[in-house]
Design a protein around this nucleic acid. Structure first.
Length: 639
DNA sequence: CGAACTGAGATTTTT
DNA sequence: TCTCAGTTCG
């Protein structure tokens, strides 16, 4: 029973309480994942069949981490519990019962780009001008409604004119999606929920299979996810939810904190365990984080304690320009690395993705090893193209895939030809185009045949060659060559799946559901790098040294056109809390008085978050760090 | 049909 | 400033 010894009293309580509902309120760095994995191990050691245990997370990364830990502790990887994200759980259930919802077993999963295209198409069909009504807004309205249990039929318009447009576009969008045998991200959850609700016999099957259900990051569940969980645990009531209201940062995506606040009401007799001992950060960092979060009203008051050292004061740097800020950060990072810190122990965080570019430039100038987490590898055109060839080869109905690649590389099949093909008027094609189209069909067929006897990575290599993309890009510009490199990176990525049994199924599914955090890094040899990422993607991670940049009013807290609602303000605060609590030893904050956004210079005031910190926690960092501004000039003079 | 040009909008955060 | 979608012209 030595796995219990490493736990503190509260953690142990959570681990040992196996029967009946349990809520673990776990602040940042209090050993949430550890408690969860130990609980799973405990259940198994007690004699529970591992296959009757389910653990649901939000990201693939979290699921993967849990899986690795459980496998390591069990010392075996067969008969392990089901550990997956909400979305991939949905995919699995929907695939098993695809006939019930009337889609192909290998239905396609639309990413947000595909979704946008389809929404626009639906708008055009319904004669709604995409310039007058933002497709993005319509898409997100549908998204929100779906995660609130609504459908195209039940949705009703209100006074807001946008809702009347949505009422028209939504059914059309659903129709197009069906035609393509596709589901979007929201469908993966809502279709699963409706399926289980409508078919008690299917629900009963899953209920009796999963007797112990764990939900990570419970504060981030939306209505559909919450209801889905309730259905799954309705028989045994063995639910263990883990979360922290202070880390709810996805309410813009429908995450509803009420779910965690109402837990005891929803599951009568629930036991609640609070984890308040932080093992991660210094006292100063926790103090600062608390000064930020305590100003929120929508929260249960709690304060983390730690036995860790007091630690160093927070470094605060006021830069003149964003360029100077980046330069300062790079200088500090270099210092740490020169002193022997591993690059991977350092992270630079920011509120919005566009801030990464200027940081990257500074890191490049100093030749620091870094990696931008969230570089959208799988949304790169060339990567999507190759994936579309593969998907289209397996599923000829997937119009969006076929459309992507039918003229890539150029085959002389333009808009007009494509329209004819999709209308089934192939005989109307001029002779040349007909031949071209036939060749294309043969190519897809060839890829499919090849795939049947080869691994995913071999097939992708084959696609790059057989389509002529290799030749075309290899002879092209530097940019083209980089594209080709990305395709080869995809080959490397795919080798991960080569030895699996249903390699292609799993490959398609995972690629579609992969978030950008998981896509790279783990399988790269150069993972010992400084990580640059948004605060959102840093949730759940920890680093020795953390830099939070761009602490400017309007940027962080972020503010767009109109004033933030109280609720939005509090979410920004929670985001800041998450950012601060990533740091183990030392936190660095910085802001720039001048920042260029859309090529327009903006003058900034320091973030309210900086002003909220007591002076004894903070020390201002030195003045001038535009050391390489000069260097850049010399560089140019030399030429 | 496709290359080249033009103008508008973008930058919150993600499965 | 950069990227994308739409339009024009060869």
């Amino acid at each position: 029973m030595n796995y219990l010894e490493s736990l503190n009293e509260m953690q142990k309580e959570a681990v040992l309480h196996t029967e009946g509902p349990l809520l673990v309120v776990a602040g940042a760095g209090t050993g949430k994942t550890k408690t969860l994995t130990h609980r799973i191990i405990h259940l198994i050691k007690k004699g529970t069949d591992p296959r009757s245990i389910l653990a649901i997370t939000f990201t693939n990364k979290a699921a993967k981490e849990m899986r690795e830990r459980v496998i390591a502790m069990l010392g075996t990887d067969d008969h392990i519990p089901t550990m997956s994200t909400f979305h991939s759980l949905g995919v699995r259930i929907l695939r098993d019962h695809h006939t019930k919802i009337g889609v192909n077993k290998y239905f396609n999963i639309l990413d947000s780009q595909d979704k946008g295209t389809l929404i626009k198409q639906a708008m055009r069909i319904q004669d709604i001008n995409p310039k007058e009504w933002e497709p993005r807004k319509i898409a997100s309205t549908i998204s929100r409604a779906k995660s609130n249990e609504e459908t195209a039929e039940t949705y009703t318009a209100n006074k807001n004119p946008l809702t009347s447009i949505v009422k028209i576009v939504w059914p059309e969008y659903e129709r197009l999606k069906r035609e393509e045998q596709s589901l979007d991200f929201d469908d993966l959850l809502s279709e699963t929920y409706f399926l289980l609700k409508k078919h008690p016999e299917i629900l009963a099957q899953y209920q009796s299979r999963w007797q112990y259900v764990h939900v990570d990051e419970y504060q981030d569940t939306n209505t559909i996810q919450y209801k889905l969980v309730r259905l799954l645990v309705d028989q045994h009531k063995n639910i263990c939810a883990v979360g922290d209201g202070d880390q709810n940062i996805y309410s813009w995506r429908g995450a509803d904190m009420k779910n965690i606040l109402n837990f005891e009401k929803d599951f009568p007799g629930a036991k609640v365990v609070l984890l308040e001992t932080n093992y991660r950060s210094t006292q100063i960092i926790l103090e600062a984080a608390h000064e930020i979060i305590k100003k929120n009203n929508e929260r249960i008051d709690k304060k983390l304690v730690t036995d860790n050292q007091e630690g160093k004061e927070i470094a605060l740097y006021e830069a003149f320009s964003a360029h100077q800020e980046a330069s300062w950060i790079a200088t500090q990072v270099k210092k740490y690395i020169d002193e022997g810190t591993e690059p991977k122990d350092i992270a630079v965080l920011f509120r919005t993705n566009f801030q990464s570019r200027i940081l990257e430039e500074a890191f490049l100038r100093k030749a620091l090893p870094y990696q931008v987490v969230g570089v959208k590898f799988f949304s790169r055109k060339e990567v999507k193209d190759v994936m579309s060839y593969l998907k289209a080869a397996f599923n000829n109905d997937s119009l969006s895939d076929v459309k992507r690649i039918i003229n890539e590389p150029k085959r002389g099949l333009g808009k007009v030809a494509v329209a004819k093909i999709f209308a089934g008027r192939i005989s109307d094609l001029p002779k040349k185009q007909l031949e071209s189209y036939q060749k294309f069909s043969e190519l897809l067929d060839d890829i499919y045949q090849f795939a049947l006897t080869h691994t995913p990575s071999d097939t992708i290599r084959h696609i790059v060659k057989a389509t002529g993309l290799e030749k075309k890009l290899g002879e092209g510009t530097d940019e083209d060559k980089e594209r080709l490199e990305n395709m080869k990176e995809l080959v490397t990525y795919a080798t991960k799946y080569d030895d699996l049994e249903n390699a292609y199924d799993i490959f398609f599914e995972e690629v579609a559901l992969l978030s950008d955090q998981d896509s790279l890094g783990s399988n790269r040899k150069d993972s010992n790098t400084v990580k640059l990422m948004t605060i959102h993607s840093s949730k759940g991670l920890e680093f020795k040294y953390v830099f939070v940049s761009g602490l400017e009013q309007g940027l962080f807290p972020s503010q767009r056109d109109d004033a933030l609602t109280k609720h939005e303000q509090e979410e920004e605060r929670r985001l800041c809390y998450v950012a601060f609590t990533r740091a183990k030893e030392m936190l660095h904050l910085s802001y720039a008085k001048l920042r260029t956004i859309y090529g327009q210079e903006r003058i900034n005031v320091p973030s309210e978050f900086v002003r909220d910190l007591s002076s004894h926690l903070v020390v201002e960092a030195g003045e001038n760090y535009d050391d390489d501004e000069g260097a850049v000039e010399t560089f140019y003079l030399d030429f």
